[in-house]
Design a protein around this nucleic acid. Structure first.
Lengths: 152, 152
DNA sequence: ATAAATTGTTTATCGTATAAACATTATTAG
DNA sequence: CTAATAATGTTTATACGATAAACAATTTAT
């Protein structure tokens, strides 16, 4: 019985594919995130930046892009936008005149905390079918996938 | 100990976030897929179409888009491309003059089988750190995430 | 027969990844 | 110290993919 029969359609070439399932599952979480944060004008990528700068004030744009594994060129428009929202600010670095140090404004700190709360709520309302142990296992497994690539 | 100290950076607002980890892991698999198939001119999305049409010949574009949960408008350029590669063909449906029935050409069948083999090889060379049981559990968990949204 | 729904299509916008090139500034090598 | 090399922020371009609105042709429902 090799044909997954959802809607009468045979998914046998996709049903065991981690790449396919990861893509689909990620889409679901993207929706969950959007419901929580789209009205605030924040995308998952922007939230990642806020999350890093919140706990690591003073990092340069490159350091943040490195922490999030995105190209530093992608940071420019992102920081521009966050600065326009007055939640992040660029301060000229004294040691290195090429770079900026990034900080959250007071508004940005409160904003990030509220976002963090909303995302937590949205996600946990959604993945309540996972036990705490399962959720940990899933996070750990995803981490192993992410790390496996770096060591390759 | 709430600060994940990778690279000396505190990830505490991201490290327990399934959405973030899923996005990162999906990126890794996207790379694995690309290494296997980019030279063939096939993206993950195009592979999904081939995989569905391979086992379900005669479906309409809408039926395929429905099976893959993508908008039917996205099918147009995709099928155009696959038809240009001479691996898929549109045949006018006799029952419904609005729609096309999709079929793989002979070339397309062999092509899809080769792709399937290469993707399997690429993925399994990569996720060998997962036991078979773990892999099944992961697939099942991802399926539950995907399905949870539909029943919402 | 009329209204409503569906199919394929075009066009547009957005989020994100990736890569090349550039000027400015720092660092390293000779 | 000078010269080569590297790093930072930036712009521009390309690609993949999701999402949504609108439209003509056609089919289905009322």
């Amino acid at each position: 019985m090799n044909s997954d029969d959802k809607n009468g359609i045979d998914y046998s070439m996709l049903q065991s594919r981690l790449g396919y399932k990861l893509r689909r599952a990620q889409l679901v979480y993207f929706d969950v995130f959007s419901e929580a944060c789209a009205q605030e004008g924040i995308t998952p990528g922007l939230f990642g930046i806020l999350a890093i700068v919140y706990h690591n004030p003073g990092l340069t744009q490159s350091a943040v892009s490195n922490a999030l594994d995105v190209d530093r060129s992608a940071m420019v428009a992102a920081i521009d936008k966050l600065e326009g929202m007055e939640v992040v600010e660029r301060r000229k670095s004294k040691n290195d005149r090429r770079s900026y140090a990034l900080y959250l404004t007071e508004k940005g700190k409160a904003f990030t905390e509220r976002l963090d709360y909303k995302v937590n709520e949205g996600e946990s309302a959604f993945d309540s079918f996972l036990s705490k142990g399962e959720r940990e296992w899933l996070l750990d497994t995803l981490d192993r996938i992410i790390q496996a690539r770096k060591g390759g």
